[in-house]
Write a protein that binds this DNA or RNA. Sequence first.
DNA 1: TTGTCTCCCCCCGGGAGACAA
DNA 2: TTGTCTCCCGGGGGGAGACAA
Lengths: 693, 693
Amino acid sequence: MAIDLNTIEDEEEEAVMQGSVCLELWHACAGMRISLPRLGSLVVYLPQGHLEHLFVGGGGGGGGGGDALPVFDLPPHVICRVVDVQLRAEAVTDVLYAQITVVAEGEWVGRQIREDGGEKEDEEMDYMDSKSNSSVPHMFCKTLTASDTSTHGGFSVPRRAAEDCFPPLDYKQQRPSQELVAKDLHGVEWHFKHIYRGQPRRHLLTTGWSAFINKKKLVSGDAVLFLRGDDGELRLGIRRASQIKGNNSHSMPPNESLNVGVGMLKSLANSVATKKIFHINYYPRVNQSEFIVSYWKFTKSCSYSISAGTRFKMCFESEDAAERRYTGWVTSVCDFDPGRWPGSKWRSIVVRWDDENCGNNSRHSRVSPWEIEPTRCLSGPHSLPISSSKRSRVMIPSTIADYPHPGETGYQNSAESVKSSRVLQGQEILGFKAPFTRGDATLPRFSETRSARFPEKRCIAIARHPPVSTDAFYKGLDLGESVRFHQVLQGQEMAPVPSTILQLPVKNQLENVGFKTLKSCIAGCSSAAPPQGYYTFMQPSSSSSLAQISSSPSVLMFQHLLHETNEREKSDGINFFYPLCSSGQQPASTYSVKKHFEFGTSSTQPIETNGQSMIRDGYSDCRLFGFPLTGKIPAGNGVPGSFCKAPSLTVTGSLWPQIPAKAVAHGHGCTRVGASLAHLFQESTSLIQPASL
Amino acid sequence: MAIDLNTIEDEEEEAVMQGSVCLELWHACAGMRISLPRLGSLVVYLPQGHLEHLFVGGGGGGGGGGDALPVFDLPPHVICRVVDVQLRAEAVTDVLYAQITVVAEGEWVGRQIREDGGEKEDEEMDYMDSKSNSSVPHMFCKTLTASDTSTHGGFSVPRRAAEDCFPPLDYKQQRPSQELVAKDLHGVEWHFKHIYRGQPRRHLLTTGWSAFINKKKLVSGDAVLFLRGDDGELRLGIRRASQIKGNNSHSMPPNESLNVGVGMLKSLANSVATKKIFHINYYPRVNQSEFIVSYWKFTKSCSYSISAGTRFKMCFESEDAAERRYTGWVTSVCDFDPGRWPGSKWRSIVVRWDDENCGNNSRHSRVSPWEIEPTRCLSGPHSLPISSSKRSRVMIPSTIADYPHPGETGYQNSAESVKSSRVLQGQEILGFKAPFTRGDATLPRFSETRSARFPEKRCIAIARHPPVSTDAFYKGLDLGESVRFHQVLQGQEMAPVPSTILQLPVKNQLENVGFKTLKSCIAGCSSAAPPQGYYTFMQPSSSSSLAQISSSPSVLMFQHLLHETNEREKSDGINFFYPLCSSGQQPASTYSVKKHFEFGTSSTQPIETNGQSMIRDGYSDCRLFGFPLTGKIPAGNGVPGSFCKAPSLTVTGSLWPQIPAKAVAHGHGCTRVGASLAHLFQESTSLIQPASL
DNA sequence: TTGTCTCCCCCCGGGAGACAA
DNA sequence: TTGTCTCCCGGGGGGAGACAA
């Protein structure tokens, strides 16, 4: 398996300084790798694989933008600009994907495409103004229980979720009920009877729920997400556990490789010649270990860290699904194919294995930097046993302690004037076995029908609207600057594996917030720690690790997409989505990724947290921007502006009904991310007490 | 829509003489067109479309087999050899497709690939010997009624079908029943309770049937096929009406274009360089009017018939699904793109339309020969109204009379020593409204839930096992030669539209036996008449044209594939499948395609028919090799070797239980093709009387 | 607060003959 | 001969509170 490597050097560095980001197409034997660009420009690299030989007579890098090149006679890389990224959902499976609209760079054509003609800065302002009054969406996500998917009875709605997202019921009635209508990602309406009954009373969806479960083929472990939009309309999304588990029956769309294959290249060539936009459909395969998503900065740092003599380890998945790890050292980093592709910046890493036997059919002397993990820098945590999925809760504080607490890094005390119109962040830490968790013998039967896999650790970041100027974007990443980073949706699920923390230049923080798949997570190759300001959520295990995966990437995609579903036509902005890759090649002891958010435009209230323990007595705990959301509220419970504090975060009120000011992360699969933010900082009518658990 | 045309000239003619057949890749705007090769060599043409620009710096034809060409730097055409064609079924949908194994030509690698090392002629003999004792399969196909797919009750098995295909019941019991186990194309076993009950008694499948219907998502109008294999095992196939109707939810496999796209080209290039085989998955889209399948001879005759000044007509499908026909004349036939593709043999047909309005967006001045129909040669039948689906039965004899009856052509009296190991042929003539047909008002309700479309006329031929040397293949098509054409499965469904009969050189007969889609059939552009030896089957209409489509292509594919399902491992031969395109470009008054069959190896009994009327008194009639299969048997009913005769056909007995010698074509959707052949020529125990209808 | 269980009871659908085409 | 209808009846599942985590 000869895999190549593109070391990105000065030219791309310059491009980045201009706001360009690269899109890599990586056709390796094991699968395709692609990194998604952020909004702005991108560079398309065409490495070995299906696409390599499309460069017939290729060679010189860089130039040749607008002249009448023979189609497909592309230079080794083409600077492109991403002018739109739309989140979409497949009709049959509801599988989410991003449609990326790209135009080959030559001159900045963003204005033509966007057609509104306004001055860029003004547009952003317009967007902000028009959106600043819109509220934080009210939403919740719940992992379906065995009862939820049972044929007997309906869906048990978490109380806070129902009160937040559903129209209020007339509780004076004996059995208050109403009909809910929720649209899914395709605009299909689903009707549910929402009833408040039972002893004790609880919110249930009965009539219609079974049909929904059956039509969507949902099973326990899957998740549903309800979102009340700005217009009061209810929207509905699903996420299948199979998408996460690596069962590709749902997650492997048929046309993926086609879209990123020759079709894209042809379009790219056409775009080079005609300056027309073209589309790339990107399916984030969160579950496939061979699929790695990253930013170019990661590639860069990766290649920087690998040179001749570097020792590394590499994990393989064998047929019996067991993981094997082999070690070796890099003998050289050389041109991939100077004869055939003289202009390429892709490099091959030639290695020698310590174990001669590992050099058999499955492994050769050339590897990908994505596959190997330099071991010089790796220390203790990596030698921990993999089978640490069931940990005592004492592990948790220590894990959490690895996260940078607000104030511990040098970046929190900057005076960012944050003006985020929306901040939605979620993080789950999974796999902890809480004391009250029942044993395996009492597992819900539906959970048992699915094979539990090792919990994944995933990170994802979603940003959208409006098109951010790249300068502003990078400025926003710098400290002490006014941020115009309008919307960030972030979620994280974390398995209790030792973390390899990133240490990267401040300027590149965002790019390094990463996503990595189960394989590398379990192997301890890397870890993505929650950046400051993340909404952290822990979920006690009910012993099946699978059942606890409830929110994070897809949830956030849902949220974003649900919100967008009916607004696509009127929206003139640009959506932006990318799963990120957390680097395992740059282990370090501190986590330095940092985010700035705008959250509305009116009043600003700094919020701080002292980073106190998030787990007490085995119950789940929630954090928003480092602030514990469940358990005792430190101060001013329910009193606006005083009950919590997090550094450098400004939040304004929403136009939505005021609901108690406590973000909720229910311990059994129900997550409310983002939507709770507005409540958190609102005056509370105190329907909700601090958790007595 | 500029479409190009490849005129195939001397070089290809030579190739054909050597046994080469071309595979065309035709990327037009409307869709992809591909002609499947017969076993032997093929030529890959790479016309305009997605693949066009892969020929960067292309040019010279022919050469360059083994040298280190840059991959994808292929010449305009590459001679390849088809070394295997396997029929397969998709796991989810049961959609049938053919996996074609191809190797770039250089030297004949068939032996290497087949690995058995035996001498070719010997292999054929071995195959014949091993298969000659195998019997004709017992099978039936039934279009599901509303009752069959109802939730109340099971599947009503036609009596003859049950007796033919299912193990006999103990009729002495009150309610004779047994459990049937049938394997589908994937080897999955389906269990059914087969019971003989009711007043009057009838065969039913009850328990298990509903599960089958639900799992396969079958609806009324779909068809099921049961086949009792040589080993007594029951096999089971389905064909969805949606596949025929053009509803591509089932019939459009996701990876089709991918397989015929760049992936194939890459494999092809690789094959050129390495002599390795590669696969093409071909999905015969019998339903899509834009998808045309043909042999190169068709292309050739087509291009031969089109020159500047040629008048033609062209049918369009408009948005309202109505067909519009426009006429025009060819102004020139020119090179497609001599600048960019100097070596190409593809040509463009430039036309001028009679109706200026028809030159709007949908039609341009360049057309495909596939789309147009020269009108100079077209006479009477084409001017008949299209809406002739409901004809009185008096039309039928006249239509049949157009077919060459045995003895009417000069080819039947040759002394072929036919040694076919299997002959399975089916033909349906649809759309006749028999006198007893009930009116629309009494249509089954489930039939009404599907929109009836105009009946299709389709022709299909399936040949398999063993690999026939191309020389022998063509010899077999010549008269007076000993035939080694071992197995032919053929079926035809014919709409009662006037036939345009082919007149082609004898040598090219088989290539011209064709398949054409609904569009061209209805338009009267072409017709495939049954060659001598076809099993002809007519089905009285029950007024809904859709409901009558029951067998033909898919049935025969089923039959073939069902038979193969469990024998794939032990089979060392080569399967061969192709839907054929009947030419409309070469109208003529006689039909000269002829087939020779072997049918067992032991005793030979010439069978003849006088081609008498196949329709009497409005009842359906069946023909096998021109011999009427239903109604009164002309002579020696049930007496072996004497009751019928057809020239040049040799049939041996089967090892299967002797069942009455009357092939049955039930009037309401149940068809027995091929399987009845054995019975037809067997001594009968006369459980079954000639139809009294 | 909510997951699971059990109970009730309706209705869907499997399975049968009746009847007619 | 077989497609459809109707009838019977049992099981599955929707919908409810009980109960406990």
